[in-house]
Amino acid sequence: MNITLNGQAHSAAHPVRLSNLVEQLTGRQLNHDGQPADGRRLGIAVAHNSEVVPRKQWATTGINEGDDVEIVTAVQGG
C-alpha cells in the first residue's frame, strides 16, 4: 500500500493503523491509548488527511491507499 508520510512516498503493509506508523518512526512501543509503554513522554502529534487525530484514536484509525499522514515532533526552543 502506498501512502504519503511526512511529505514523502512511503510503502506500508496493509492493514496498518496510525499507531503502527508512530511505533515505526519512534522505535517505541505504544499502549492501546497511544501512550508510550515505557512511560516516558512522546512529544508528537499526528494528522491524517489534514485532520489532527487525538492520541487515544491512533490505535483505531486505519490507513488506506493514498492517505496522507504527518507525524511531527514537538521541539522546544526560541
Rank of each mutant, 00 (worst) to 15 (best):
Q35N: 15
P15F: 03
E51A: 15
A45D: 12
G27S: 06
Q24S: 08
W58P: 08
E23P: 01
V53P: 00
G39I: 07
T60C: 03
G34L: 03
A45N: 14
D38I: 02
T61R: 07
Q35M: 11
P36Q: 01
R17C: 15
G39P: 00
R55P: 11
Q35H: 11
W58H: 04
L42E: 01
L18H: 15
V16D: 01
K56F: 14
R40A: 15
V22A: 06
R41Y: 11
I44M: 10
G34K: 00
G39A: 02
T60G: 00
H48C: 05
V52D: 10
Q35Y: 13
R55N: 04
Q29Y: 06
L42F: 05
H48Y: 08
R40C: 05
D33S: 12
P15G: 09
E51H: 10
H32V: 12
Q35W: 10
G62E: 15
R17A: 13
V53Q: 01
H48T: 14
A37G: 00
V22H: 00
V46K: 09
E51I: 09
Q24F: 02
R40I: 01
V46W: 04
V22G: 03
P36W: 06
S50K: 13
A37F: 08
R41D: 14
Q57K: 14
Q35R: 15
N49D: 06
R55C: 11
S19P: 03
V22R: 00
S19C: 14
N20V: 02
W58M: 09
L25S: 05
A45V: 15
W58N: 09
G34I: 04
Q24N: 09
E23T: 04
